[in-house]
């Protein structure tokens, strides 16, 4: 765990890449050679050492660079971080969860000492040393969700639970796969999932909501979701569509390996104890096609999944324009051999 944080960018010159260690631990989302929706929720419990599931909050080699990218996004567009007034208690819940997890699991980087409500937080990689009073907003430089959200990888949304529904009433979202907090804030679970094709008919959201409403304290759950992104860009938001949408037309047979990325979201769902709100943490991982095929099983399977993906999902995930080029490139890495079940490398 004593590796350096990489200096890299997720915009302009796009110097992001994964180390071999980072490739091996990538949460490859396809457990068979095809993909369809399922309520693929499992307990968010401790996984093998070194895996992205080792700790509830995963901090990796991209930490510092991702936080720098978040700061740029927030500076340009403060509405990426919003909380309705009744969510203050949930904001403190959120801060408590992140600080206690990070300090416990990464003591070399973070420390938290608490004497009653007097807290002291140190973040060494980002050079932050903050004393504050838990529950007193005035003792922090900004509201608690923003304060800790600027120091943790992943996007976060906080859902208020009332009237048998979950309402997205707060969040800090700068690395999203083409959805907008500013648009969704105040919506309920069914409303913000309105645009998703096919899944409504499958009653996926009814079942998922029922599960979430009964989510228990101390028993978080997780699922993987995925899409594809051209260039290692974290901020693929509707707000900035003009900056990245056209990139989809730049994929050529020569540059697929470097330009086309699989983007996987490790979504964890947590009951927050003091507010009874539900936290969604949406932790994104990017991997280049050229990195992905270094694991032979993944190369084979990625090719097969893309080939058999239903057209509605191809369009919804925004990969229509470069799907065929990518399939063609991946075909070199699919020798037709069978793949083993599950997502892990062989």
């Amino acid at each position: 765990m004593n590796r350096e944080f990489k200096k890299e960018t997720f915009r302009d010159d796009y110097t992001f890449f994964n180390s071999p260690h980072s490739i091996r631990r990538f949460p490859f989302p396809f457990w068979e050679d095809k993909y369809m929706y399922s309520v693929n929720i499992e307990p968010h419990t401790k996984g093998p050492a070194g895996s992205v599931y080792e700790f509830p909050i995963d901090i990796n080699e991209h930490y510092v660079a991702e936080m720098e990218d978040r700061a740029i996004v927030l500076k340009e567009d403060p509405l990426r971080c919003q909380a309705l007034p009744h969510m203050m208690l949930a904001q403190w819940d959120f801060l408590e969860l992140l600080m206690t997890s990070m300090a416990r699991d990464y003591p070399q980087w973070f420390s938290l000492t608490a004497e009653g409500s007097r807290w002291h937080w140190i973040n060494r990689p980002l050079g932050i040393d903050q004393k504050f009073t838990f529950g007193d907003v005035g003792t922090l430089p900004c509201e608690p969700m923003e304060f800790i959200g600027r120091q943790c990888q992943g996007d976060f949304s906080l859902q208020d639970q009332r009237d048998g529904q979950l309402w997205m009433d707060a969040g800090i979202v700068t690395t999203q796969a083409d959805w907008s907090l500013d648009f969704d804030v105040g919506m309920n679970f069914m409303e913000w999932h309105g645009p998703v094709p096919l899944a409504h008919d499958m009653r996926v959201f009814d079942r998922a909501l029922k599960f979430l409403l009964n989510l228990q304290i101390g028993q978080p759950a997780r699922r993987l979701n995925w899409t594809m992104t051209v260039n290692p860009r974290l901020d693929t938001s509707p707000e900035n569509y003009t900056k990245w949408g056209a990139d989809r037309a730049t994929v050529t047979p020569e540059n697929v390996g470097d330009k086309v990325h699989l983007r996987v979201e490790l979504q964890a769902l947590w009951r927050l104890p003091r507010s009874n709100a539900v936290l969604f943490s949406i932790r994104g991982y990017l991997i280049k096609m050229s990195e992905l095929v270094t694991v032979p099983k993944w190369g084979r399977r990625m090719h097969r999944v893309l080939k058999s993906l239903p057209q509605e999902l191809v369009d919804y995930k925004g990969i229509t324009r470069y799907r065929d080029t990518t399939i063609e490139w991946l075909s070199k890495y699919d020798d037709g051999l069978p793949t083993s079940p599950g997502g892990a490398p062989d």
Binding site: P85, H86, M87, S275
Partner: peptide, 12 residues
């Protein structure tokens, strides 16, 4: 058991 909330304040 851990605490469960079925009777919550609406802080709005």
């Amino acid at each position: 058991s851990p605490p469960v909330s079925l009777f919550s304040l609406d802080l709005r």
